[in-house]
Amino acid sequence: MVEVKNVNKTFAGNRVLFDISTVFDRGKTNLIIGQSGSGKTVLLKSLVGLHTVDSGEILLENRDLVKMDFGKLKSIRREMGMLFQGGALFDSLTVEENVLFPLNLFSGMGHEEKIHRVNECLKRVNLRNVNHLFPSELSGGMQKRVAIARAIVQNPKYLFCDEPNSGLDPKTSIVIDNLISDITREYNITTIINSHDMNSVMEIGEKVIFIYQGYKHWEGTKDDIFNSGNEYLEDFIFASNLAKKVKNKMNIHNRS
């Protein structure tokens, strides 16, 4: 479980996060949604200590990340996996070496055992026969899968995903979303996902918080997101013309 209490963040006088508080449960896919520039990435990176916040608490199973020194932070990070917006695979290493990387540094496993674990994770994300390719030789969707495999190779307790399906087609997006959701349940991970994709919300939004210009405007589940009554959220949900048309059609249909 990750608890966020009154988190504020400023960059050189530019306030990005305003008094954010919420709770992300274990074994659930928690979504942070909002439009581009609303502060999702800053919030997610604050949760893992890549940004230092101005004030507030970030509790991982009651351990406050904000107060930790670098050494403590380093050790708690071994419980975390993270998926970055651009994949962030090491481009000088092959797929296998990428996934192997955390194991080489932190596990006491023998070589055979490590390779076995790597293949297990690659298989889990449905990747086969790509072990010796470089990231530049893979498609965007495959890179995302490798990144997921790398993120879960150390059996993390927490999984953070920054727009896992940015740059992917809708079908592949759903595959990735469901993969993350399945893994979350399988390994009972606390998963927090940034997204601006309503498809993801409807697919895996067990808990959703909506950020607008650095403020948390709403939280709930995918089932009550259409009855929020929050005008910014409605604006976000029905941002596309297609969605607006569907909504209008439905209103007419409901009235008749």
Binding site: L50, R78, M82, F84, G86, F106
Partner: peptide, 14 residues
């Protein structure tokens, strides 16, 4: 800029 340094940090690497 490609967040590979962040990726290292998140693995618990200095």
């Amino acid at each position: 800029v490609s967040e590979q340094i962040d990726a290292l940090e998140i693995m618990g690497v200095n």
